[in-house]
Amino acid sequence: MTDTHADHELDPADPLSTALRRAAAEERAQHTPRLAARVAAALDAEPAAPAARAWPWWSLAAAVLLALVAGGLWFRARPDAGGATGGAPAVVEEHTPALDGAPQRARAAVNPATWTRGFAPEASLTRELSSLTRDTQSTARFLLGHVRLGPAQRGS
């Protein structure tokens, strides 16, 4: 290999340096390799190549565990879950075709001006309420509790 880190003050071109290099090269050349077979036999008993062992099982398990913990934290902290960082639960606006117009119909049920003969406001209101979402229902129950329908308004 080329010496890219030559220290010229350590490596003077004197006979001693030359002799040391030459003697080292001779010693290596005269050496009979005998460890290669023994090392190869020892390596055969090794479980896997280094690259395959670069990611041991525990690191994979740790990665999965970390992903689960991160997912759990995100799930708890998402805004609509009422997590610590999410503040108050947000109202989810869902478009449900069956509920289209339900608030309007509920308002009509409690508005005497819209009643016609034979109209049963309470039954109508109950029917409309049953189709509303829970939040809307609770609002409507509140309204029911405050709307007092007198006999004159019930129709006859």
Partner: peptide, 23 residues
């Protein structure tokens, strides 16, 4: 290459550095 799993490459490394290591 040995790090990628080549035992042949590692065997070549052993042969190359054996004498030096022993000394």
């Amino acid at each position: 290459r040995a790090r990628a799993g080549s035992k042949e490459a590692f065997g070549a490394l052993v042969e190359r550095h054996e004498a030096s290591l022993l000394r």
